[in-house]
Design a protein around this nucleic acid. Structure first.
Lengths: 112, 112
DNA sequence: CTGTTTCATCGTATATTTGCGATATAATTA
DNA sequence: TAATTATATCGCAAATATACGATGAAACAG
């Protein structure tokens, strides 16, 4: 794009879009699921679960971390990642507020 | 990317990611909000609300339509768009199921 | 019929995302 | 110390996404 217009949108819309963007790749969705399942915060086990190379998985993990949805700690040779539940809670609230606000405006009759 | 690996993920994860992708741009979030607010399905009024050119808005509308979240009808010279509530409902359910499933696995103690 | 309005689509430029091999780094093991 | 293991990061290639001017098409007004 010639110019990035994203700054000109409402902060709320931007925040929701940011969260949505983080979930917009199935690998990241799968990573979150995997991290939640294995209570014990795993590391490269994630690589085994996904059909992607290690470097690519590491990149997706970084994105999730940057978005604040997960946190990571170095544990000797391995890295231990886990879900940041407070962040998930906050983002869930934002998403649900958006969807609820939409539905609150749903008209009785369909117009088209 | 050399190859598109998206096909190799679970259908559920793909569907959620697709929905998230549609919401991953603030313009599309704003369009949905606007369509919900103005009960009367507007057309190019959306262009006036957004800081984007007509061609760009039209493109975002097309994406929302392709995703099934809105439907559009030609009304003489103008186009009338409106939210596809059934689709919004379905996607909401999917998103909430995902987030609920995650939270159901939240451990009592934080591990890292 | 001609000009206008409203919107979709095409073509293009640029930015971002995705993916991976190669390589660097750091702890671990032999 | 040297080889091994687990990850992160770099650099590149290819795919997508974003944005918009220009142009096309269809309805409408005069």
């Amino acid at each position: 794009m010639a110019v990035n217009k994203k700054m000109e949108f409402a902060a709320d819309d931007l925040a929701l879009a940011e969260f949505a963007r983080t979930l917009s790749h199935p690998a990241r969705v799968a990573i979150l699921k995997t991290l939640a399942e294995k209570q014990t915060c795993i590391c490269g086990e994630i690589v085994d679960v996904l059909p992607l190379a290690q470097a690519t998985v590491s990149q997706h993990l970084k994105e999730l971390k940057t978005a604040g949805l997960i946190s990571g700690e170095v544990e000797g040779v391995r890295s231990c990642y886990c879900i940041d539940w407070a962040s998930i809670e906050a983002m869930t609230a934002r998403m649900e507020a958006f969807l609820a606000a939409l539905k609150a405006l749903k008209p009785d009759s369909t117009c088209c």
